[in-house]
């Protein structure tokens, strides 16, 4: 039981760091949904089934849906965001070139 808690905690921290630092926004949203399911597992390990059901339903189903809608409406669903000041392109070769140029000049 302690070993399970340690494994889930390490996964939690790793995937949450991934959701914040990964370059593609679509992957970040999917990672957030996975983190939410791991948090629901943590709640189960803490003997809180009510909270676990609520977190799994709201955090991983609803929140991911609203994020995907937001990504689609801001045209970010396949953009790579290297945090270089300009929202890098739409995942094509031209977009990656402009993204790396902006990242290089703003480093």
């Amino acid at each position: 039981m302690g070993a399970m808690v340690i494994v889930v905690s390490v996964l939690l921290i790793g995937l949450a760091a991934g959701a914040i630092f990964v370059r593609s926004l679509g992957s970040a949203v999917i990672l957030l949904g996975t983190v939410s399911l791991l948090v629901a597992t943590t709640f189960l390990l803490l003997a809180a089934p009510d909270v676990a059901i609520t977190e799994a339903a709201i955090g991983s189903a609803l929140t991911t849906l609203v994020y995907v809608l937001a990504l689609k409406r801001t045209n970010s669903i396949d953009s790579l965001d290297d945090d270089g000041g300009r929202q890098a392109g739409k995942g094509t070769a031209a977009g990656q070139k402009s993204g790396s140029a902006a990242g290089g000049s703003h480093a």
């Binding site: 009510d50 059901i53 609520t54 339903a57 189903a61």
Partner: peptide, 25 residues
């Protein structure tokens, strides 16, 4: 079911309502 058995088993009004909304989605 989750809404109706909120006082007997884990769940209650909030996750049950979310599930029914998921059907609409």
């Amino acid at each position: 079911y989750i809404v109706a058995h909120g006082h007997l088993s884990p769940g209650g009004g909030f996750p049950g309502g979310v599930l029914v909304a998921t059907a609409v989605y």
